[in-house]
Design a protein around this nucleic acid. Structure first.
Lengths: 194, 194, 194, 194
DNA sequence: CATGAATGAGCATTCATTCAT
DNA sequence: TATGAATGAATGCTCATTCAT
């Protein structure tokens, strides 16, 4: 089924911003990839930067929503971190372009747009912080640097978008399971729990 | 003591490429930061891309050399990984701009330059692979996914350049020690060893 | 009637390339003469060199076509040379800019474009060679150096673009008639034939 | 024997201006060809344009002097034209670069320099005019367009610099002899005179 | 809904030239 | 005599964006 022009623009932008960077992507590249004239592009977007900001906000919001759904009703911190890692890694593996755009383009945004993006991201990362804090409080996690560990884990998981290929030796499930193990180990979850 | 113009160009490029990206950095930005006219820039560099490639190769080579020095005479895989992590993290914390340029700009390079850069990077990463393989063979490491773990650890350590600040709560030593712990845990080093 | 922008670009290029040379003509000169911004120029041309190549090929092709038409059904070599000279001289007198561009810019072209231009030019000059050879065979021409004579005549006729003015003492018809006489004399056509 | 730097600059300029044109030749091309730095070039020349003007004036003056020497004591117009053609053609064949610079760069010069060059050229061409007028007066030449014929002959002879090669089928002597024949025929010199 | 035409501003790079050494 | 360093101005060309149709 044919995509709408609007959707074609969006997909073209995601792919190109991810692979060539925002500044490395010209409006003409976008137009060509979306099979539109560069003038027509402007029926479906504001400025190039607004297009970027929309993509970033959108992806982040969807991640946040999905995370909230995953965590709904789950109390065990080990399980919660496991679900966050699984979701994060899976998302980065399945949508490497979207996530690379989100993860690498914060600095490009104007202050106003950056604020909005960072706010959503902070809300999302708070889910990680909360889970880690809970685990520490309950004694199931053991680390002296919860903040650094959280960031380290997030960076580690973000990296998946840069290297994972479904055509490689790992299935998505294996990949996610391995990263969950890495996270649990990093947080000092005792072996018997795993 | 005054810097040479050449050095000023280099430092300006590192800072700007790191913060604004290669395509986001104009030759005029570079000139202004180096306190030179844009024409004079070309006494100290080839093209903008060649400048980038030189910086990347240079930084990678220095990292590789330092790693070789660190590992010299060290046999214990636990210690070797510890030293690699310490060096990697310390370098990323001390020279966040250099390392961000190296870690984020491979795709910008022309095929020829990319080849050269990737070759050095592969040689460096082989040091990690070797240490991990040794640890697995000797039974001190325990993981079913050595390759994925190596990449995950590298990404995790690279991330340091994106967030660590010496003005934050962690000293360089604490930071490095924590990342060594994370790496050892990720590789399944038994607690008594740590 | 108003010219199209495309045509204005073409005419501006012909005039400027002819008078200031290809390298002496800047893109901004072209834009100003075509009453367009320098950016708009690029809607109507590829690169500056492609614009040159198109002009050259076009003019040469039109000369070749016209020559073929002139010679159609004409057998007498004296008459054929007369018609070639008349056409060549008339063209150079009427379109001095076009012909100066064609005659003086072969060396500027890239190898590929030069090849294309030289091919058409060679085809055209072959018409002269054939006429001269025929005249020699039939005994109506007398020269020991047909090749040198052909080139000499062509250079002589090309020169017209450099000096002839319709405001001078010679009408186009007188000019052409005189050059025909010069050509016939050069080829040793007996006086009674003229 | 080694050339002086001054002479190397001169020769480099002649070769490059002839083949790539004045505007197509950069100061760096000149420097490289003269095996000097571009700054050092300025010890041996004024501006690029002055260098061009000096070359042109010099070559023209030498041609004029040589012509005066050739004509000294020669009264017969047929012989005079013969000597002028021989000298002109020989010079263009032997020094194609010098003559191409002289013949094709008048338009590049500033008004003042152009004036000086054109003055010498006019003096030289006057020698041709005088010879032709004499021949007409004495009845040995027959043409209704002496001015056009003179220009046509000059253009024809200038052309030699564009095509003649000593490695081709014609020796210099044969070339000159043929052009003398062409000139005599163009001027209507009766066959018995030749 | 779509685009050809248009542009001011900007791009990386090169220009001819100067000057202190 | 020679040049490395330096530059303001210019180079050919592309940028993101607008607008009339």
């Amino acid at each position: 089924m044919a995509l709408t022009s609007r959707e074609r623009v969006r997909r073209a932008a995601v792919k190109l911003f991810a692979t060539k960077g925002f500044h490395g992507t010209g409006i003409r590249d976008l137009a060509q990839a979306a099979k539109l004239s560069s003038a027509s592009l402007y029926h479906y977007m504001g400025t190039k930067e607004q297009l970027l900001a929309e993509i970033m906000l959108d992806c982040l919001q969807r991640l946040l929503d999905a995370a909230a759904r995953e965590l709904d009703g789950v109390d065990d911190p080990v399980e919660r971190i496991g679900r966050l890692v699984t979701l994060h890694v899976t998302t980065h593996a399945r949508q490497p372009n979207e996530t690379r755009v989100v993860d690498n383009h914060v600095d490009v945004l104007s202050p106003r747009a950056r604020r909005a993006v960072v706010d959503v991201r902070d809300t999302y990362e708070q889910l990680w912080s909360d889970a880690i804090d809970d685990g520490l409080r309950s004694g199931v996690f053991a680390t002296t640097q919860p903040a650094a560990t959280r960031i380290a884990l997030l960076e580690m998981c973000n990296g998946v978008a840069r290297w994972y290929s479904p055509r490689g030796p790992l299935t998505l499930e294996q990949l996610a399971a391995h990263y969950v193990q890495l996270a649990h180990r990093a947080l000092g979850v005792p072996d018997m729990r795993r």
